[in-house]
Each structure stands twice: as structure tokens, then as C-alpha cells.
Amino acid sequence: MNDINYLWPLMGGLLIGLSAGLYLLTTGRIAGISGLAAAATGLTGAGFSKLGLGFLGGILGGALVASTFVREPNIEVTSSVPLLLVGGLLVGFGTRLGSGCTSGHGVCGLARLSPRSIVATLTFMAVAAATVFIVRLFSGAIA
């Protein structure tokens, strides 16, 4: 394995942890992407959040910087657009139903040893594993 292959994910994980910690220290709030996205777009009922817009802008800006200076991402869409839209809507519904997403529960909630986040993260992981198994079973990848 090339030494650089593990460096980018490690740096990305450190930056995610750093940004979540700084967000908690500076605002006293948990940095969940779904909640910040809802606040940035005005879906929380409190109007548009400048802080949410800034956080989302930082995420998009970081991706832009990484793709410009590090390497061009190799994105390959292998599914149909309607299927992607349905999947996106289901994920969005799930984050609202679960009162958070993998970043809020998985990164911030587990770090705080929140029982609700532990259950939510275990549920995310179990459903993901079951989905992969079922898709592979029906696609013929598992004999």
C-alpha cells in the first residue's frame, strides 16, 4: 500500500473531529449536518441560520479546495436518477425521524456517550449491513 493512501482519510477524519469539537466549544451545540442543513435552509421554523449557512459553506468549500489542490474526484454514478432521488428522500426522512444523522449521532453523540446516539448509530450500521446483504443477495453477488 502506498503511504499516502491512508493519509487523506486520516486528515479528513481529524478535520471532522476538530470542526465538531470547535463547534461544540464555540456554540455549545452539537454539529449534526442534517440539523445544520435544515437551519441553513430555514426548515426549522426559526428562519435562515447564518451559522448553518457558514457551516455548510465550509463543507462545500473544503470539498472544493480538496478537489482543486489534492486531486480531482473520480465520481461514477451507477444508478438511475429516480432511484437516487428516492434514496435521498428516504435518508432525509430517516434523519428527521431519528432526530439526527450519522455526523450528529455517530461523531458527536458517541463522543459524548449519549445512549440515544449509541442506539441510533447501531441502528444505522445494522440497517446498512442488512441493505448491503439484501442487495448483494438479489443481484447475484452472493451465491
Rank of each mutant, 00 (worst) to 15 (best):
G21L: 08
W8C: 13
G87K: 13
F138M: 14
F55W: 03
G58L: 09
L43N: 12
V65N: 05
V91T: 07
M125C: 11
I142L: 15
L7G: 12
K50A: 12
Y6G: 13
R96H: 07
L85I: 15
G88P: 10
T41Q: 03
A126L: 14
M1N: 14
N74P: 01
K50Q: 12
V81T: 15
L53V: 08
F69Q: 00
F138Q: 14
L84T: 12
G57N: 01
G88D: 12
E76M: 00
V127I: 11
A46D: 15
L15C: 14
V70H: 07
E76W: 04
G21F: 06
M125E: 11
G106K: 09
G52P: 02
T26N: 11
L137Q: 11
A141P: 12
I134R: 04
P115L: 03
G104A: 02
L97N: 02
G61R: 05
G57C: 02
G87R: 14
N74G: 07
G28L: 02
A141F: 09
A40R: 01
A37H: 05
A128M: 08
L113A: 01
T68Y: 05
G17L: 15
A66F: 11
L56R: 05
H105M: 07
S117T: 09
G58T: 10
G109H: 07
A20G: 06
L84R: 12
I30A: 05
G21P: 06
A31G: 00
L83E: 01
T78A: 09
I30G: 01
R71D: 08
T27D: 05
H105T: 02
S114V: 00
T26V: 13
N5M: 14
I33A: 12
P82R: 10
Y6T: 13
T44H: 09
L24Q: 01
P73A: 10
S80Q: 06
A20R: 08
C101G: 03
I142P: 10
T68P: 07
